[in-house]
Computed example of a mutant assay.
Amino acid sequence: GFDERFRRAFREDADLALRLDAAGWRIAEGERQTVHPVRAADRWVSVRAQRGNADDVLMNRLHGPGWWRRAGAERGRLPRHLAVTAAACAALGGLATGRPRAAALLGGLWLLGTGEFFYARLSPGPRTRDESLTMALSSLLIPPLATFHWTRARLQAPPARWYDGTGVWP
């Protein structure tokens, strides 16, 4: 029942749940225990995971803008990533057009947003030197990559058509 347009293990379950709900099925909480061992991950796993932002675009296309609430999904940091990336781009634009004050202000906003993201990710620990370096490097890369994948999906996606309750899926 999973929609094969979801190429990663991300959002395919929320899509299925929303389709079941829209078809009149009831999803009940049960008692089941699953052991899912955590795979070994390299330093860049969270950077690669930003491809999942494209799946959020597909969810919007399929289920409408309110799908987050209906699926009980967290909104995530995409709005902040978009703002941080916009500040960085605008700061570079200010430098390129000879507006150093604007560039400094916008660069400060980029630095503040990036610093907040880094702190939020590092706070839980373990705060080793290697973990701190990983968090610093990936915190610089994640906002623009999340923005890139989201924007690319928005530009490539067909016009918004979500489920209308007729039994026919777009």
Rank of each mutant, 00 (worst) to 15 (best):
G1R: 10
E4P: 05
A9Y: 08
F10M: 10
F10L: 02
R11C: 11
E12C: 04
A17V: 07
L18V: 10
A22R: 15
I27L: 09
A28F: 06
A28R: 14
G30F: 03
V35C: 02
H36G: 06
A41S: 10
A41V: 07
D42P: 01
D42L: 08
R43C: 02
W44M: 15
R51W: 05
N53D: 05
A54D: 05
D55K: 01
D55P: 07
L58T: 09
L58I: 05
M59F: 02
L62S: 00
H63F: 12
G64S: 09
G66T: 13
G66D: 13
R69D: 10
A71P: 03
G76Q: 13
P79F: 06
L82S: 07
L82Q: 03
L82N: 03
A83E: 05
A88F: 09
L92C: 13
P100V: 01
R101A: 11
A104T: 08
A104Y: 01
A104R: 04
L105N: 01
L106Y: 04
L106S: 07
G107C: 12
G108P: 06
W110V: 07
L112D: 08
L112F: 10
L112W: 12
T114H: 09
G115T: 14
Y119G: 00
A120H: 12
L122D: 05
L122F: 14
P124A: 15
P124T: 11
P126C: 08
P126Y: 10
P126L: 14
R127V: 02
S132K: 15
L133P: 00
T134W: 00
T134S: 11
T134D: 12
A136T: 04
L137N: 02
L137H: 09
S139H: 03
L141A: 14
I142H: 04
P144G: 11
W150S: 02
W150R: 02
A153N: 02
R154V: 06
P158F: 10
A160H: 09
R161D: 10
W162F: 13
Y163C: 05
G165R: 10
V168G: 01
V168R: 14
P170Q: 03
